[in-house]
Design a protein around this nucleic acid. Structure first.
Length: 976
RNA sequence: GGGCUGGUAGCUCAGCUGGUUAGAGCGCACGACUGAUAAUCGUGAGGUCGGAGGUUCGAGUCCUCCUCGGCCCA
């Protein structure tokens, strides 16, 4: 130590002050990419796999995000949760492999390509389908690349070099194979359903392709003569109201509601000579009859009640029954419908099951009831692709509902004329209302019955537990749900759902690779076809080699059917594609089952709560239908990310937070800390304030680790046995032991916020504010031979190793940086396992005792605070208070302890007995009173403690006896 | 409109089967230290537990209604 000019020693140079290059400020946005680069260089993912070879597998199966557009905050939340789980299981001793996946087929990508076409003035229909498909494929591939990079930037670890894609040839082959399993087991059937159809584009449209615009519709009030009903209603009619007169030929029933009050009304005065005339009797909802009378320009009086019992079982004639064509002679039943309201109309709802969603659903739900009445429940196909009536709507040949330009056709007028001819038109009018239009052509669309492919939910004998529904419900019971409420939600949906529609009339997807016999309706592969396996295999093999494009290639039909069927002419190759939910529902088949490094079923599926209707749902159905159980043992759901006020993020409100901006401004670890400290079982909130809270937490955490690093930079000396350690060290080991249990069990139950909270609180309350604060004197000032110092260093080392590994799954970047700072030769913290904590560390009695010690300490600190307020002291080392203890328990607790060390004062006098008046007390610590006093003696120039033995060693006159001894020791070692 | 679900200090979270004056960390204010220093330590102020009824000796915790929000349907 160099003496300065005035011959004074710089004692700070003789201390073991913290020394570290580990920066206080993280600079994560810059630092994190460097760490990623390091991981890439060592190929961290592959090394981890090799490292974990042979260990028990833990498989979290990735739900595939859709491959279009950049990541949003929801993706970040989802993938971070997955990553925390993957990493924590890896560090807890499993081989925890994670294979990311992407959903690549489907509508949104088709739109984008079509949009590009329109920009170039091209038309999708003029492009060969496989050319179009290739462009979709390229588009998806591009976004897989972009998202992959973004996920990696978030610190996600996984097999990003070999992800699974639904559009990989192998995937497409197996998806088709899965579909054919449904076909072969007799679970697949061809039915029909009304869908939104654009006549102009001659294409089906999805909900998202629809926009609502004002539109003027023709409206009609139509009489349905009662054919069978109670006597007092004989000769009367039920009147319905509709804004789509063209759907009258497709009418199959009329719905009423139990909640509506109906009456029988008779016309008393009629303004016109046409339409309803005096004496005509009809039934209306009492609340709506006035408006109806007005529209028909008549006056009516109520002549009787109509009860629900009167309506139940009633049968009507079709209003076009008498128009002289074959086809309207069927019976029209009255059915109850929950969708019937008194908002508008007549209180009765005209039901054309082929042209409306409610209509269809109510009709299908009541199928048994309808059949029991001896009525055919099949749904007619009344309108063709081009908007023209078909033979299923007899009497209107060549009449169009909508023409090729999107203009109204003659259908409404023709129907109205026919109704007038039958004297069944009660009134007519026009109404302007919101009506669905194609967002592309801006032309009105129609609901139109079309053939679709379904899977039976309730067909018996085709599935493990009889029906698919029962099989799936049983599978739900076998699954663990986190949080538990998810089970009810999924169960409710499976219980109530209709048959599963698989088909889409689209181009970018896996085809429904079956053939249908147009005459017999037989489908192959199928249950009664002996070459099903051969056919199925042939298709799968082709798809594996060429992708699903093989289905659309020239000569595909011949290629697949040669030698399979005798007369290929009879068979039609189905051109529909599979709904993308079937693709993703099959990931377990083409990813989990196929990859050697994974397993089936997965330990865990993890997605947002919307996936109860999505991926959890379709995976469950797919797997139940083909394998009789769920493809997962457990399902974890998380909520959605909201803005700070709890409402949805929206561009217009300007409260959208993107992962990209958080990462570039604060770093991925900040985002990850936010995830790990939030309650993901509900919706989570994110905004400026919340981000700042996490930044602050991060700083505290980082600084605490930094201090440990600095402290640990000094020689730890030889190991101190547990029994030789001071109580304070043993207390900390006990706490580590407790935290070890807490951390492990909460990683196991996926409760990360508990881990984060506990560790942060521990670092703040017990380390920074207590243990470290107390031990600074020993760590900085004690000499190399001090057992106290060696023990403390050892404990800090234990703390460091555990805290850093425990937090590595949550903060992979920072913990890597921290770990490498202490262990520069280590490969990566991510190869570490959570260190075990010996049971010898546990000491409950000691913990109880020290709770009491800290109570006494609180009183001392409280008393010193007053002194500080009054400017009598600054540092607590200036004080040497007297502690009066009048409490046996507390007295026993502190007996034999260096209370001045624990309270960080220069001296403490313990006095058993009553305190003088005016001594400082705390309400909640009975029997402890403190009288503050200034420490006697001089301030030691080295330790800053005020002692009476400063100058005891004439060689070091400025320091206390303890410090002089240390200096002598250092001198002996040649370190001075 | 229906199903499921949530609303505890400025922020994030604890509060088990109903039981003393509702807790913690952060933030904030004030103070101390200047050997964790754009750090560290201490003290303090913040809540009619979304609102209103009800059950109970007693409710943040149970029931009903209302309100605001979320997901999924319609």
């Amino acid at each position: 130590m160099t003496d300065s000019a005035d011959n004074k020693i710089d004692y700070s140079k003789t201390l073991n002050l913290p020394q570290t290059d580990f920066p206080m400020r993280a600079g994560l946005p810059k630092k994190e990419p460097e760490i990623i680069e390091r991981w890439n260089e060592m190929n961290l993912y592959k090394s981890l796999r090799e490292d974990a070879k042979g260990r028990e597998k833990f498989v979290l199966h990735d739900g595939p995000p859709y491959a279009n557009g950049n990541l949003h905050i929801g993706h970040a939340l989802n993938k971070t949760l997955k990553d925390v789980i993957t990493r924590s299981f890896q560090m807890r001793g499993y081989d925890s492999n994670y294979v990311p996946g992407w959903d690549c087929h489907g509508l949104p990508i088709e739109w984008k390509i079509e949009e590009q076409y329109r920009g170039k003035g091209k038309n999708k229909d003029e492009v060969p389908i496989n050319e179009f498909r290739q462009e979709c494929r390229d588009f998806a591939a591009h976004w897989v690349g972009v998202q992959s990079e973004e996920f990696l930037r978030l610190g996600i670890t996984g097999d990003f070099e070999n992800p699974y894609l639904t559009m990989n040839f192998d995937s497409e082959a197996i998806i088709a194979g899965e579909l054919m399993k449904f076909a072969k087991s007799g679970q697949l059937y061809r039915g029909s359903k009304p869908i939104m159809w654009s006549v102009v584009e001659q294409t089906a449209l999805a909900e998202a392709e629809i926009e609502y615009e004002m539109y003027e519709s023709d409206t009609v009030w139509v009489k349905f003569p009662i054919a069978k009903g109670p006597d007092h209603l004989k000769g009367a009619s039920i009147v319905i109201w509709t804004t789509t007169p063209w759907t009258m030929p497709a009418n199959r029933c009329v719905c009423y509601s139990k909640k509506v009050s109906y009456g029988l009304y008779e016309v008393t005065v009629a303004e016109n000579e046409f339409g309803p005339q005096p004496g005509d009797r009809s039934i209306f909802a009492d609340s709506l009859v006035g408006e109806c009378a007005e529209k028909a320009k008549v006056e009516m009086k109520r002549v009787g009640d109509v009860s629900v019992d009167d309506l139940k079982g009633m049968v009507l004639d079709h209003p076009l029954k008498g128009m002289g064509v074959d086809g309207y002679q069927f019976k029209v039943p009255m059915l109850h419908g929950d969708h019937v309201t008194e908002d508008a109309g007549t209180g009765f709802v005209h039901t054309a099951p082929g042209h409306g969603r409610d209509d269809f659903e109510n009709w299908v739900a009541k199928r048994a009831e309808i059949e029991a009445l001896g009525i055919d429940s099949s749904i007619p196909f009344c309108v063709a692709d081009d908007g023209t009536y078909t033979d299923d709507a007899p009497g209107f040949p060549d009449v169009k509902v909508i023409d090729e330009k999107g203009k109204k056709g003659k259908a409404n007028q023709a129907v109205i004329t026919a109704l007038i001819g039958q004297n069944n038109l009660f009134a007519r009018g026009r109404v302007k209302h919101e009506y669905p239009h194609s967002w592309r052509s801006k032309k009105p669309i129609i609901f139109r019955n079309t053939p679709q492919w379904f899977v039976y939910m309730d067909k018996d004998g085709v599935c493990e537990k009889g029906t698919l529904r029962n099989t799936a419900l049983a599978a739900i019971e076998e699954t663990r749900f986190v949080p538990a409420l998810g089970k009810n939600r999924l169960r409710g949906m499976i219980e109530g759902r209709p048959d599963w529609v698989l088909s889409r009339q689209r181009a970018w997807g896996v085809p429904i690779s079956v053939f249908r016999n147009e005459e017999t309706g037989q489908v192959i592969p199928g249950p009664e076809f002996d070459k099903s396996d051969e056919l199925s295999q042939r298709i799968v093999e082709a798809f594996k080699k060429e992708g699903a494009d093989a289905w659309y290639a020239e000569g595909a039909k011949k290629r697949f059917l040669d030698g399979i069927v005798d007369n290929q002419e009879q068979w039609t190759k189905v051109n529909d594609i599979l709904d993308v939910w079937f693709d993703s529902g099959s990931t377990h088949a083409f990813c989990l089952e196929q990859r050697e490094d994974l397993k089936w079923p997965a330990d865990l599926y993890l997605e947002g709560s919307d996936q109860h209707r999505g991926w959890f749902h379709s995976s469950l159905l797919e797997s139940s239908g083909t394998r009789g159980r769920a493809p997962y043992d457990a399902v974890l759901t998380h909520g959605f990310v909201m803005a700070e006020d709890g409402t949805k993020m929206s561009k217009s409100k300007g409260n959208v937070v993107t992962p990209q901006e958080v990462i570039s401004q604060s770093g991925a670890d900040i985002l990850r800390l936010w995830v790990a400290s939030s309650d993901y079982s509900e919706d989570l909130r994110l905004g400026k304030t919340i981000l700042q809270t996490n930044i602050d937490s991060y700083r505290k955490l980082r600084n605490t680790l930094r201090w440990m690093l600095g402290t640990l930079s000094h020689d730890e000396g030889e190991e101190v046995a547990l029994a030789d350690m001071p109580e304070l060290e043993r207390l900390m080991l006990h706490r580590i032991w407790e935290l070890d249990k807490l951390v492990n069990s909460n990683y196991d139950s996926f409760d990360f916020k508990r881990i984060t909270r506990s560790l942060l609180d521990f670092m703040v309350l017990e380390l920074s504010a207590f243990y470290f604060d107390v031990r600074k004197d020993a760590l900085y000032c004690d000499g190399p031979s001090s057992v106290r110092r060696k023990a403390a260093l050892q404990v800090v080392g234990h703390l460091f190793d555990r805290l850093v590994t425990w937090m590595a799954p949550i903060l992979p970047f920072t913990m890597e940086e921290t770990w490498l700072s202490r262990y520069p030769d280590a490969k990566s913290v991510h190869f570490e396992q959570f260190r075990s904590c010996p049971d010898e560390w546990r000491d409950d009695a000691l913990a109880t005792k020290w709770k009491k010690v800290r109570q006494v300490r609180r009183v001392v600190t409280g008393a010193l605070e007053i002194e500080r307020r009054e400017k009598r002291i600054g540092s607590s080392l200036e004080a040497a208070p007297v502690v009066y203890i009048n409490n046996d328990e507390l007295n026993t607790a502190i007996n034999g302890l260096d209370m001045e060390e624990i309270c960080i004062t220069s001296d403490i006098e313990i006095s058993v007995g009553t305190a003088p008046d005016g001594a400082f007390t705390l309400d909640d610590v009975a029997g402890v009173a403190v009288v503050p006093q200034l420490a006697k003696g001089e301030k030691c120039a080295r330790s800053w403690r005020v002692t009476t033995d400063v100058g005891a060693d004439p060689e070091f006159p400025e320091v206390s006896a303890r410090d002089a001894k240390v200096l002598q020791e250092l001198k002996l070692l040649g370190k001075l």
